[in-house]
């Protein structure tokens, strides 16, 4: 644990925490645009800057990356920080005057508009990198990246063509704070001509990466629920059976073993088609069934076969 001061208040932070995490634990507000607890800190938006005094030296640092160490003195609203933050918000306003979250942040900090001497663009991407990082770090599809560099930096699919590695999971659209990433789920349609009708199954398009993929339909409820390439990727990654994703998450129910009733006869185990049930030795004579749900396809066989009706 580290003990540090934020705005004069003494707080403790667990080992490995950043100043931002420590501040948020103690309800101290620090604005951010590019940070997300599921992703590694990136330090691109610079809004989370704070003034840090350590060993007699005072510097301005991004709280999302700086470790909360013993003896730090942190100021989240010092004049330098306030001025810096103001300029950054103005720069964002100059770049994206019509993006809602930028306008909201500007309003919160009392900034009406960017300095008139600055030029104005009308961009909708704030280059926070959340989409790129989600795609690369979490989904691990690596379908999109930053392209160009410097002033001309954009987020793009390779060579500005259809993103071949995109699995249409929609994480980019989900995490994008400005709404510029357009994901549309389209129902199945028929196209009819005098010759006859052709069915197009339900699909998902992500316009920004020129991607279109079929949605998988749940065999139980009949609803399209997730893009097929994403499900295939997960199936490969975790070595699931090919049929695993035939059922959607809403319909999928995993077995629960009532250990009071279970007598460890192994009937469920014997009949499980993919070995998702094992008998756990709980000491002595008793062996209770244990389900490894990552292999389980929720086919209900074990439930049917339990003599003690211990599985539901």
């Amino acid at each position: 644990m580290a003990t540090l001061k934020i705005n004069g208040k003494k707080i403790t932070a667990p080992d490995g925490a950043t100043i931002l995490e420590a501040a948020r634990e103690h309800d101290i507000k620090i604005p951010t645009l590019c940070s997300n607890e599921a992703l590694k800190p990136y330090g691109a938006c610079r809004l989370c800057i704070v003034e840090v005094t350590q060993n007699g030296r005072t510097t301005i640092e991004t709280s999302c990356t700086y470790p909360a160490e013993d003896g730090l003195e942190v100021k989240t609203e010092s004049p330098r920080v306030a001025e810096g933050r103001k300029l950054i918000i103005e720069l964002y306003l100059a770049r994206c005057p019509n993006v809602k979250i930028i306008r909201q942040m500007a309003e919160e900090y009392g900034i009406k508009e960017s300095a008139p001497q600055m030029g104005k663009d009308n961009d909708y991407c704030i280059l926070c990198g959340l989409c790129v990082r989600a795609c690369n770090e979490v989904v691990k599809a690596g379908a999109i990246q930053f392209a160009g560099s410097g002033i001309n930096k954009i987020v793009d699919s390779p060579f500005h063509k259809t993103a071949e590695d995109c699995v249409a999971c929609g994480s980019c659209a989900f995490i994008c704070p400005t709404g510029i990433i357009k994901k549309n789920d389209l129902p199945s349609t028929s196209q009819c001509t005098p010759e006859g009708c052709t069915q197009t199954g339900a699909q998902r398009e992500i316009l920004n990466w020129q991607v279109e993929h079929k949605l998988k339909v749940c065999t139980k409820c009949g609803n399209p629920y997730a893009p097929e390439p994403h499900l295939q990727k997960i199936t490969r990654q975790y070595n699931f059976l090919p049929e695993f994703f035939n059922i959607c998450a809403s319909c999928r129910q995993y077995p629960v073993v009532d250990e009071e009733k279970c007598l460890g006869c192994g009937g469920c185990m014997e009949n499980c088609p993919i070995g998702a049930l094992e008998l756990e030795d709980k000491g002595g004579y008793d062996k209770k069934a244990h389900v490894f749900t990552e292999n389980c396809t929720a086919c209900h066989t074990c439930e049917d076969y339990c003599p003690m009706r211990a599985i539901s």
Binding site: G43, C45, R46, Y92, G150, I151, K153
Partner: peptide, 8 residues
């Protein structure tokens, strides 16, 4: 182009 300050 990574950080907003420099790029913008």
């Amino acid at each position: 182009g990574k950080c907003s300050t420099c790029r913008e």
